[in-house]
Design a protein around this nucleic acid. Structure first.
Lengths: 197, 197, 197, 197
DNA sequence: AATGAATGAGGCTTCATTCAT
DNA sequence: TATGAATGAAGCCTCATTCAT
């Protein structure tokens, strides 16, 4: 299974990108149950070509997810040195939501639960988020009773909330990220009814 | 397609209930992609019986959703007269989340977008929520820049957030409802970056 | 998966028989690699019907093989009481070959190596052949250095030998059964170069 | 399609040999259904190279078979002058079986039924066997009622008989060749029920 | 009205073969 | 010439839906 872009022939590299792009969009728009046929149709390649590049439909899904998550990690690391840790966390969450204005983002977490590649990259993401959260806590800019896990879980909510709104402005999620982030601030926080997961 | 319970023979009515119950549980536990076979197996009826009662799998889904939403409306109307409008809204959202501790709650909104019955009942729900929100606003217990639509959209988020946590406590959503609700309170609210949808 | 003929509805029982018959012929004529589509086409049923009756293509193969083998066992038991044990064994082998004038009989032994049903029935066949061989030995009508296993292995050879002869007389195998059986007789037997398997 | 070794560039000739060797082993070990990919992997060449040397997978099969058969012819001619014609025939059959201790030998006869090259070489083999058989007849070392055709048909039986025995000794076929050959001897021969094909 | 069998479209994947590099 | 990517026709199997009993 070819994967290293440098070693790929030009046409193969191109098809791989077409498939990744098509997968990203199709998974996003129609959910993880889109057929391989739809993905290849969108990519403009034959069905057989799909399986030259990805062993399995799940394999493509894992690749798409890994790609997303890797980009997220980079974003997290970039903002880690911002002087205002609270703003840094908000900036991270903003970019995270920006990255996926598509539907069905929840599969990011679910998707490759049993795919080693996805698990690995996801764990790295969690570490990064952990660092952001810790800094925000130290700066007193996050309510003291929420953890990194909470932030991780809430991270996809703004996109999700907006998912089924027809004809929504493409950045409507910003509104809900703001509301949820307000809920994470220390000011006006009410005690939480349940311990963290 | 028989539907009016009064015109149904006793056994037919019973089968309809069995199917609704089975559909509710199966959709909840396994998502909207459960097979009709699984639903009928759980209901203890034959597959043919399914299609005597529901034209389509989506038809059952619509019925299940309608049922959920109707219950929600009743909850909303029940709390409408509570003395504390803020607490009333929170109570409503709590019951709403309680009603579906299962997976795949998002389909509540999506499910029957093109099903007249679902659209109708959903609109009635929105009216009820509108009333709850208005009272909360009047009492100054909701930040002034959020609308009923915002509440509606955020309503499913607590369940969703928790959806993919394996081995989560069944009421973990309470934690995230609390956080989100804090974000809806007037205290410490930061201005929202986008207008309402 | 329905199987007990008595409990089957008339149409289902009929289709099951059609599929078994078609499978028998198709497997026989074209080998174990015939497609399910070809089998169902021959049976005159839809592809879906196939999988209502058999979980798998291998499942049908196992059923066909079991059927063959069961018939063989009955034959063996029938001749077990013949007065001339040598003739009894020859009669058994004759009927065995008669039963399958089709191609690819070798799959009888191979087919369901990992199918419990096939293994079970095959073992019963071996017991029966063992009895026939033992009696023939006692009567001195079989060369003393061959075992039941040898007979079992040689059993399919006459059909196989004739398998690829185009336009062969349908009972040409009789000729080769006679030759091989002569090789099994005590008269004129030369010592065997290898022990039994 | 290049085939005459003299006209081939050195590397091309080498690839052709690699493919023939790989085909021989793969067909032998895994049967005629091995994929071209597996063959080329074993040969260490690219799939495209395969089709530069052989028009078709069947074409390689035909080449492999031709090669086998040619070797067989040489063996036959070599033993043709042995003083004991009966032993010569047995020696020939022994070498024939030795040549293919692998699976799926039956394809030797089947394989290229419609491939001119295979047909031609096969006919030459039959001539050679005819000569061996004739000499054995003249020496009275073969039962008088069997023909060259009979010998040809029975030739593959010893391998076939042993084909599906798991963990068989690699030369178990010797046992069955001995039995079958005993059946071909004049001593103790019983009359045959059918004329020759 | 209930049953459960039949249907056939469609999903994923493999593989012989063709073609661009 | 060699390579390895692209193709698309099957292949097996699932499942919503229809239909005979």
């Amino acid at each position: 299974m070819p994967s290293d872009p440098q070693t790929l022939r030009a046409d193969a590299a191109r098809n791989r990108q077409l498939l990744l792009a098509a997968g990203e969009r199709e998974f996003g728009e129609k959910g993880v149950d889109v057929s391989v046929a739809e993905i290849t149709r969108r990519a403009g390649v034959a069905k057989g070509t799909f399986f030259r590049h990805f062993t399995t439909k799940d394999d493509l899904l894992a690749a798409v997810v890994s790609h997303h998550v890797t980009a997220l990690i980079e974003t997290g690391e970039r903002v880690l040195d911002d002087e205002d840790p609270g703003e840094a966390l908000l900036a991270f969450l903003t970019v995270a939501a920006e990255q996926r204005q598509q539907h069905d983002v929840s599969f990011l977490l679910k998707a490759g639960e049993d795919n080693a590649r996805v698990v690995e990259v996801r764990d790295r993401l969690y570490v990064t988020i952990g660092a952001l959260v810790e800094r925000a806590h130290e700066a007193g800019q996050l309510r003291s009773d929420v953890s990194a896990t909470d932030v991780i879980l809430l991270m996809c909510a703004p996109n999700h909330v907006v998912e089924h709104v027809t004809d929504a402005a493409p950045d409507l999620w910003r509104r809900y990220l703001a509301i949820i982030f307000d809920g994470l601030r220390p000011e006006g926080a009410h005690p939480l009814p349940r311990g963290e997961p």
